[in-house]
Computed example of a mutant assay.
Amino acid sequence: MRKHKFRAWDEENKVMIPWDQLKFDKDPSEEIVVYRQVSAGEWEGIEPELMEYTGLKDKNGAEGCQDDILDTHVGKAVIKLGKYGGTGDIEHYNVGFYVDFLDRFTNSAYRHELGYWLPQSVIIGNIHDNPELLAGKQS
């Protein structure tokens, strides 16, 4: 069983916060509260966008995470989490981590399973720190 880890994008400060600098808690209303480490023993509450680690690594051994950008042999792709698959009127979908290719043709022509793509690809950045890598994305 894989370890569940997250990283967080702090939009206010424009910084990615690694797993080991995050702390999670519940407030009295049972809502999850996220804190980032400011200094040794000092934490501040934040409202980040959380990204889950996939439990898989790229061909260089880097851990794959939601919103990472991959360089595959057929083009760039983004790691996403959610529903993917089904076409047309068929209500058959997969749910989990998958790749979303930046090029519309490539996205429709190739499989999307992350477990197939990540071990043979390289993580070149993420959509928050490296938005320039998404240039030319076709919808």
Rank of each mutant, 00 (worst) to 15 (best):
M1V: 04
K3L: 15
K3H: 15
K5F: 14
A8E: 06
D10Y: 04
D10C: 02
E11G: 08
E11Y: 08
E12M: 12
E12I: 09
K14L: 14
M16P: 12
W19T: 12
Q21T: 03
L22P: 04
K23H: 11
K23I: 04
K23N: 10
K23T: 05
D25N: 14
D25V: 11
K26P: 09
D27M: 06
E30F: 08
E30L: 08
E30G: 09
E31N: 12
I32H: 06
V33T: 05
Q37H: 02
S39Q: 08
S39V: 02
A40R: 13
G41P: 10
E42P: 00
W43S: 02
E44V: 08
E44I: 06
I46V: 04
I46H: 02
E47D: 06
E47A: 04
E47Q: 04
P48S: 09
E49R: 09
L50C: 06
L50G: 07
M51S: 13
M51G: 10
E52P: 09
G55W: 07
L56W: 10
K57D: 06
D58Q: 00
A62L: 04
A62R: 07
G64L: 07
G64Q: 07
C65T: 00
D67M: 00
D68M: 01
I69L: 02
L70S: 04
D71R: 12
H73N: 14
V74C: 03
V74M: 03
G75K: 08
K76M: 13
K76S: 08
A77Q: 10
I79A: 02
I79R: 02
K80F: 03
L81E: 09
G82M: 07
Y84S: 03
T87H: 15
E91S: 15
H92Y: 12
H92N: 11
H92F: 13
Y93A: 07
Y93L: 03
N94T: 02
F97L: 01
F97S: 00
F97D: 01
F97T: 00
F97I: 01
Y98F: 15
V99I: 13
V99C: 07
D100M: 03
D100V: 01
L102G: 04
D103Y: 03
R104H: 14
F105R: 10
F105S: 11
F105P: 00
T106C: 07
S108H: 10
A109E: 12
Y110T: 03
Y110L: 01
L114W: 10
Y116R: 04
Y116T: 01
Y116M: 09
W117E: 00
W117G: 02
L118E: 01
Q120T: 01
Q120V: 00
S121M: 05
S121G: 06
S121C: 05
V122I: 05
V122H: 11
I123M: 12
I124M: 14
H128Y: 14
H128M: 04
D129Y: 00
E132L: 05
E132A: 09
L133F: 04
L134R: 00
K137A: 11
Q138R: 09
Q138D: 11
S139F: 00
